[in-house]
């Protein structure tokens, strides 16, 4: 299984894909902040004059409203396309780490698109594959966040 995932991920390297994350709503960002355990009014109360979108909101959001179709999910509950190369394979998926760089301010009302591409595929061990993905979150007025994300496939 890992050989197939590795081959697919290698083939996907450098191929950029885009997906809409919808429009940033204040209530949704505030709900995220509350669920993350924040209590600062500027993060959890859209009526607060200093309200801002939680910086981790967009990069934590796996799907926009209204959510995924059932056919988009793997048996383990992950999205089939979340980890490139693993669709349909009986492999274990774990997050390896992230680097998040904020290059613009996310604002309520932003229509956000995320682009991503596989940038590295590393067979660490016969039973462990590391896939690195670069993501760029952008609004119409320009880039907002850049992410490097690593997935562990076993």
């Amino acid at each position: 299984m890992l050989d197939v995932a590795e081959e697919r991920a290698q083939a996907a390297m450098g191929r950029w894909e885009a997906r809409s994350l919808g429009v940033v709503r204040a209530e949704a960002a505030a709900e995220f902040a509350r669920a993350a355990g924040d209590s600062a009014p500027a993060l959890v109360d859209p009526a607060d004059p200093a309200f801002v979108v939680h910086p981790m909101y967009l990069v934590s959001l796996l799907r926009p409203e209204p959510g995924a179709e059932p056919g988009e999910l793997r048996p383990d509950g992950m999205y089939r396309d979340e980890v490139p190369g693993t669709d349909g394979l009986d492999v274990r998926l774990m997050a390896g780490g992230q680097a998040v760089r904020w290059v613009g301010e996310v604002r309520v009302g932003d229509r956000v698109e995320v682009r991503r591409a596989v940038t590295a595929v590393d067979r660490k061990r016969p039973d462990l594959l590391l896939i690195t993905v670069e993501k760029t979150y952008a609004a119409e007025r320009g880039p907002l966040i850049e992410v490097t994300e690593r997935f562990i496939v076993r």
């Binding site: 709900e31 669920a35 355990g37 934590s60 796996l62 799907r63 995924a68 999910l73 383990d76 509950g77």
Partner: peptide
């Protein structure tokens, strides 16, 4: 500091639409 409990994981998974069974 944070002490996440099962309820927090459920809420966080719901708002981020993270349905991974782990």
């Amino acid at each position: 500091e944070l002490v996440p409990d099962e309820v927090m994981l459920l809420r966080f998974g719901a708002v981020t639409r993270n349905t991974h069974r782990i």
